[in-house]
Design a protein around this nucleic acid. Structure first.
Lengths: 122, 122
DNA sequence: GATACCAGTTACAAAAAGGATACTATGCCA
DNA sequence: TGGCATAGTATCCTTTTTGTAACTGGTATC
Protein backbone atom coordinates (compact mmCIF):
# COMPACT_ATOMS: atom_id res chain seq x y z
CA UNK A 1 0.00 0.00 0.00
CA UNK A 2 1.63 3.23 -1.12
CA UNK A 3 2.18 5.86 1.53
CA UNK A 4 0.71 9.29 1.16
CA UNK A 5 3.55 11.32 2.55
CA UNK A 6 6.89 11.98 0.93
CA UNK A 7 9.19 9.79 3.03
CA UNK A 8 9.60 6.17 3.84
CA UNK A 9 11.23 6.06 7.22
CA UNK A 10 9.46 9.00 8.89
CA UNK A 11 5.80 8.63 9.65
CA UNK A 12 4.46 12.16 9.21
CA UNK A 13 4.97 14.99 6.76
CA UNK A 14 6.41 17.00 9.60
CA UNK A 15 8.99 14.33 10.35
CA UNK A 16 9.69 14.16 6.66
CA UNK A 17 10.36 17.86 6.44
CA UNK A 18 12.68 17.61 9.40
CA UNK A 19 14.53 14.68 7.88
CA UNK A 20 15.20 16.76 4.80
CA UNK A 21 16.37 19.66 6.94
CA UNK A 22 18.80 17.33 8.67
CA UNK A 23 20.20 16.30 5.33
CA UNK A 24 20.60 19.92 4.35
CA UNK A 25 22.26 20.75 7.65
CA UNK A 26 24.80 18.05 6.93
CA UNK A 27 25.37 19.38 3.45
CA UNK A 28 25.88 22.86 4.86
CA UNK A 29 28.66 21.59 7.11
CA UNK A 30 30.44 19.02 4.95
CA UNK A 31 29.07 19.75 1.51
CA UNK A 32 31.21 21.19 -1.23
CA UNK A 33 34.19 19.88 -3.03
CA UNK A 34 36.76 19.55 -0.29
CA UNK A 35 35.61 19.08 3.29
CA UNK A 36 34.92 15.37 3.21
CA UNK A 37 38.09 14.79 1.25
CA UNK A 38 40.11 16.68 3.82
CA UNK A 39 38.53 14.74 6.65
CA UNK A 40 39.21 11.54 4.81
CA UNK A 41 42.86 12.46 4.50
CA UNK A 42 43.18 13.60 8.10
CA UNK A 43 41.72 10.32 9.29
CA UNK A 44 45.23 9.01 8.67
CA UNK A 45 46.69 11.36 11.25
CA UNK A 46 47.51 14.99 11.81
CA UNK A 47 49.16 16.92 9.03
CA UNK A 48 50.80 20.29 8.58
CA UNK A 49 49.37 22.92 6.32
CA UNK A 50 51.73 22.30 3.41
CA UNK A 51 51.45 18.56 3.67
CA UNK A 52 47.71 18.76 3.58
CA UNK A 53 47.82 21.12 0.64
CA UNK A 54 50.04 18.77 -1.31
CA UNK A 55 48.21 15.63 -0.29
CA UNK A 56 44.81 16.95 -1.36
CA UNK A 57 46.01 18.94 -4.34
CA UNK A 58 44.33 22.06 -3.06
CA UNK A 59 45.67 25.60 -3.24
CA UNK A 60 46.62 27.34 0.00
CA UNK A 61 43.93 29.95 -0.43
CA UNK A 62 41.12 27.45 -0.60
CA UNK A 63 42.66 25.18 2.00
CA UNK A 64 42.89 28.03 4.47
CA UNK A 65 39.25 28.89 3.95
CA UNK A 66 38.07 25.30 4.28
CA UNK A 67 40.09 24.69 7.43
CA UNK A 68 38.69 27.80 9.09
CA UNK A 69 35.15 26.67 8.44
CA UNK A 70 35.94 23.18 9.68
CA UNK A 71 37.51 24.60 12.82
CA UNK A 72 34.42 26.69 13.49
CA UNK A 73 32.27 23.60 13.12
CA UNK A 74 34.42 21.70 15.57
CA UNK A 75 35.79 19.21 13.08
CA UNK A 76 39.50 20.04 13.25
CA UNK A 77 41.89 21.62 15.69
CA UNK A 78 44.69 23.95 14.75
CA UNK A 79 47.92 23.75 16.74
CA UNK A 80 50.86 26.06 16.28
CA UNK A 81 54.13 24.26 16.96
CA UNK A 82 57.02 26.07 18.56
CA UNK A 83 59.48 25.19 15.83
CA UNK A 84 61.67 27.20 13.44
CA UNK A 85 60.12 27.89 11.08
CA UNK A 86 56.78 27.81 12.82
CA UNK A 87 54.53 24.99 11.71
CA UNK A 88 50.86 24.40 12.19
CA UNK A 89 49.28 21.02 12.63
CA UNK A 90 45.73 20.20 11.78
CA UNK A 91 44.08 17.28 13.44
CA UNK A 92 40.62 15.82 13.49
CA UNK A 93 38.61 16.28 16.66
CA UNK A 94 36.88 13.35 18.34
CA UNK A 95 33.65 14.97 17.20
CA UNK A 96 34.63 14.52 13.58
CA UNK A 97 34.52 10.77 14.15
CA UNK A 98 30.76 11.05 14.17
CA UNK A 99 31.10 11.53 10.41
CA UNK A 100 32.69 8.11 9.98
CA UNK A 101 29.51 6.47 8.84
CA UNK A 102 28.92 9.13 6.22
CA UNK A 103 32.43 8.88 4.87
CA UNK A 104 32.57 5.12 4.90
CA UNK A 105 29.19 4.89 3.19
CA UNK A 106 30.46 7.20 0.47
CA UNK A 107 33.70 5.25 0.07
CA UNK A 108 31.75 2.06 -0.35
CA UNK A 109 29.26 3.52 -2.76
CA UNK A 110 31.93 5.09 -4.92
CA UNK A 111 33.78 1.80 -5.11
CA UNK A 112 30.69 -0.12 -6.17
CA UNK A 113 29.59 2.55 -8.58
CA UNK A 114 32.94 2.52 -10.31
CA UNK A 115 32.74 -1.24 -10.70
CA UNK A 116 29.28 -0.89 -12.17
CA UNK A 117 30.50 1.72 -14.64
CA UNK A 118 33.42 -0.46 -15.71
CA UNK A 119 31.08 -3.40 -16.18
CA UNK A 120 28.83 -1.37 -18.43
CA UNK A 121 31.65 -0.42 -20.77
CA UNK A 122 32.07 -3.90 -22.25
CA UNK B 1 51.76 2.69 17.43
CA UNK B 2 50.90 5.34 14.88
CA UNK B 3 50.54 4.19 11.30
CA UNK B 4 52.74 5.63 8.63
CA UNK B 5 50.22 5.88 5.84
CA UNK B 6 47.35 8.31 5.58
CA UNK B 7 44.38 6.06 6.22
CA UNK B 8 43.06 3.93 9.02
CA UNK B 9 40.97 1.29 7.36
CA UNK B 10 43.09 0.62 4.26
CA UNK B 11 46.42 -1.04 4.76
CA UNK B 12 48.56 0.52 2.04
CA UNK B 13 49.03 3.96 0.55
CA UNK B 14 47.70 2.60 -2.69
CA UNK B 15 44.50 1.46 -1.02
CA UNK B 16 44.31 4.81 0.67
CA UNK B 17 44.54 6.66 -2.62
CA UNK B 18 41.82 4.47 -4.05
CA UNK B 19 39.60 5.04 -1.04
CA UNK B 20 39.88 8.76 -1.61
CA UNK B 21 39.12 8.33 -5.29
CA UNK B 22 35.99 6.40 -4.37
CA UNK B 23 34.89 9.24 -2.16
CA UNK B 24 35.46 11.68 -4.96
CA UNK B 25 33.60 9.50 -7.42
CA UNK B 26 30.64 9.62 -5.10
CA UNK B 27 30.89 13.36 -4.79
CA UNK B 28 30.99 13.66 -8.57
CA UNK B 29 27.69 11.81 -8.85
CA UNK B 30 25.71 13.07 -5.87
CA UNK B 31 27.71 16.08 -4.77
CA UNK B 32 26.40 19.58 -5.11
CA UNK B 33 23.51 21.34 -3.57
CA UNK B 34 20.55 19.40 -4.85
CA UNK B 35 21.01 15.78 -5.89
CA UNK B 36 20.83 14.14 -2.48
CA UNK B 37 17.93 16.38 -1.52
CA UNK B 38 16.04 15.38 -4.65
CA UNK B 39 16.69 11.71 -4.01
CA UNK B 40 15.58 12.15 -0.44
CA UNK B 41 12.31 13.67 -1.63
CA UNK B 42 11.75 11.06 -4.31
CA UNK B 43 12.23 8.31 -1.75
CA UNK B 44 8.64 9.11 -0.79
CA UNK B 45 7.39 8.16 -4.24
CA UNK B 46 7.35 9.38 -7.80
CA UNK B 47 6.62 13.04 -8.47
CA UNK B 48 5.88 15.23 -11.44
CA UNK B 49 8.20 17.96 -12.53
CA UNK B 50 6.22 20.81 -10.98
CA UNK B 51 5.60 18.96 -7.79
CA UNK B 52 9.27 18.24 -7.41
CA UNK B 53 10.13 21.84 -8.15
CA UNK B 54 7.75 23.11 -5.50
CA UNK B 55 8.63 20.46 -2.96
CA UNK B 56 12.36 21.14 -3.16
CA UNK B 57 12.12 24.88 -3.73
CA UNK B 58 14.26 24.63 -6.82
CA UNK B 59 13.82 26.59 -10.02
CA UNK B 60 12.82 24.70 -13.16
CA UNK B 61 16.06 25.50 -14.88
CA UNK B 62 18.23 23.90 -12.20
CA UNK B 63 15.81 21.07 -11.63
CA UNK B 64 15.87 20.15 -15.29
CA UNK B 65 19.65 20.09 -15.32
CA UNK B 66 19.92 18.03 -12.14
CA UNK B 67 17.36 15.50 -13.31
CA UNK B 68 19.16 15.03 -16.61
CA UNK B 69 22.41 14.26 -14.84
CA UNK B 70 20.68 11.92 -12.44
CA UNK B 71 19.02 10.13 -15.32
CA UNK B 72 22.36 9.67 -17.04
CA UNK B 73 23.79 8.21 -13.87
CA UNK B 74 20.91 5.77 -13.60
CA UNK B 75 19.40 7.26 -10.47
CA UNK B 76 15.99 8.32 -11.78
CA UNK B 77 13.67 7.41 -14.62
CA UNK B 78 11.65 9.88 -16.63
CA UNK B 79 8.19 8.84 -17.78
CA UNK B 80 5.96 10.93 -19.98
CA UNK B 81 2.30 10.41 -19.15
CA UNK B 82 -0.33 10.51 -21.88
CA UNK B 83 -2.48 13.13 -20.16
CA UNK B 84 -3.73 16.59 -21.09
CA UNK B 85 -1.73 18.58 -20.41
CA UNK B 86 1.17 16.19 -20.71
CA UNK B 87 2.89 15.43 -17.43
CA UNK B 88 6.20 13.83 -16.67
CA UNK B 89 6.89 11.63 -13.71
CA UNK B 90 10.25 11.18 -12.11
CA UNK B 91 10.91 8.09 -10.08
CA UNK B 92 13.91 6.64 -8.35
CA UNK B 93 15.48 3.57 -9.89
CA UNK B 94 16.23 0.47 -7.84
CA UNK B 95 19.88 1.38 -8.29
CA UNK B 96 19.37 4.60 -6.40
CA UNK B 97 18.55 2.53 -3.35
CA UNK B 98 22.22 1.73 -3.09
CA UNK B 99 22.56 5.30 -1.84
CA UNK B 100 20.32 4.63 1.14
CA UNK B 101 23.15 4.22 3.56
CA UNK B 102 24.72 7.49 2.49
CA UNK B 103 21.47 9.39 2.81
CA UNK B 104 20.46 7.85 6.09
CA UNK B 105 23.91 8.46 7.54
CA UNK B 106 23.61 12.10 6.57
CA UNK B 107 20.10 12.39 7.99
CA UNK B 108 21.31 11.00 11.28
CA UNK B 109 24.38 13.14 11.43
CA UNK B 110 22.48 16.32 10.63
CA UNK B 111 19.99 15.56 13.35
CA UNK B 112 22.67 14.98 15.96
CA UNK B 113 24.68 17.96 14.84
CA UNK B 114 21.70 20.25 15.18
CA UNK B 115 21.10 19.00 18.70
CA UNK B 116 24.72 19.63 19.54
CA UNK B 117 24.51 23.16 18.17
CA UNK B 118 21.36 23.90 20.15
CA UNK B 119 23.02 22.56 23.27
CA UNK B 120 25.99 24.85 22.81
CA UNK B 121 23.83 27.97 22.62
CA UNK B 122 22.86 27.86 26.29
C1' DG C 1 -10.15 34.70 -28.19
C1' DA C 2 -8.28 35.24 -23.42
C1' DT C 3 -6.71 32.50 -19.75
C1' DA C 4 -4.48 28.85 -17.38
C1' DC C 5 -1.86 24.54 -16.75
C1' DC C 6 2.03 21.51 -17.80
C1' DA C 7 7.20 20.72 -18.98
C1' DG C 8 10.67 22.56 -19.95
C1' DT C 9 14.13 26.30 -22.46
C1' DT C 10 16.37 30.74 -23.27
C1' DA C 11 18.70 34.80 -22.10
C1' DC C 12 20.59 37.48 -18.72
C1' DA C 13 22.49 38.63 -14.19
C1' DA C 14 24.57 37.64 -9.84
C1' DA C 15 27.15 35.03 -6.84
C1' DA C 16 30.11 31.47 -5.41
C1' DA C 17 34.06 28.73 -6.12
C1' DG C 18 38.53 27.90 -7.84
C1' DG C 19 43.22 28.86 -9.56
C1' DA C 20 47.72 31.39 -10.29
C1' DT C 21 50.88 34.27 -8.73
C1' DA C 22 53.08 37.12 -5.81
C1' DC C 23 53.56 38.70 -1.41
C1' DT C 24 54.11 39.24 4.12
C1' DA C 25 56.42 37.87 8.29
C1' DT C 26 59.52 35.03 10.87
C1' DG C 27 63.80 32.89 11.60
C1' DC C 28 67.44 29.45 10.42
C1' DC C 29 71.84 28.72 8.00
C1' DA C 30 75.85 29.82 5.24
C1' DT D 1 73.45 39.79 3.37
C1' DG D 2 71.12 36.39 0.55
C1' DG D 3 68.65 32.03 0.26
C1' DC D 4 65.41 28.90 1.97
C1' DA D 5 61.36 27.06 4.56
C1' DT D 6 57.05 27.72 6.98
C1' DA D 7 51.93 29.54 7.16
C1' DG D 8 49.22 31.87 5.42
C1' DT D 9 47.15 36.55 2.68
C1' DA D 10 46.21 39.60 -1.14
C1' DT D 11 45.19 40.38 -5.69
C1' DC D 12 43.44 39.35 -9.94
C1' DC D 13 41.06 36.62 -13.04
C1' DT D 14 38.33 32.60 -14.96
C1' DT D 15 35.06 29.13 -14.42
C1' DT D 16 31.15 27.12 -12.39
C1' DT D 17 26.94 27.42 -10.13
C1' DT D 18 22.64 29.44 -9.06
C1' DG D 19 18.82 32.37 -9.57
C1' DT D 20 15.13 35.34 -12.14
C1' DA D 21 12.10 36.28 -15.52
C1' DA D 22 10.33 35.70 -19.68
C1' DC D 23 9.16 32.63 -23.15
C1' DT D 24 7.77 28.21 -26.33
C1' DG D 25 4.53 24.70 -27.47
C1' DG D 26 0.74 21.92 -26.60
C1' DT D 27 -3.97 21.50 -24.65
C1' DA D 28 -8.12 22.44 -22.17
C1' DT D 29 -11.44 25.67 -20.30
C1' DC D 30 -14.21 29.77 -19.89
Amino acid sequence: MPNKNRCLTPATDEECRRARLSLQDTLDVVGGKWKLVLISILRGGKLKFRELSREAGISPRILSKELKEMEINGLVTRTVLDTRPIMVEYELTPYSNTLSEVIIAMHEWGKKHRQKMIGQKS
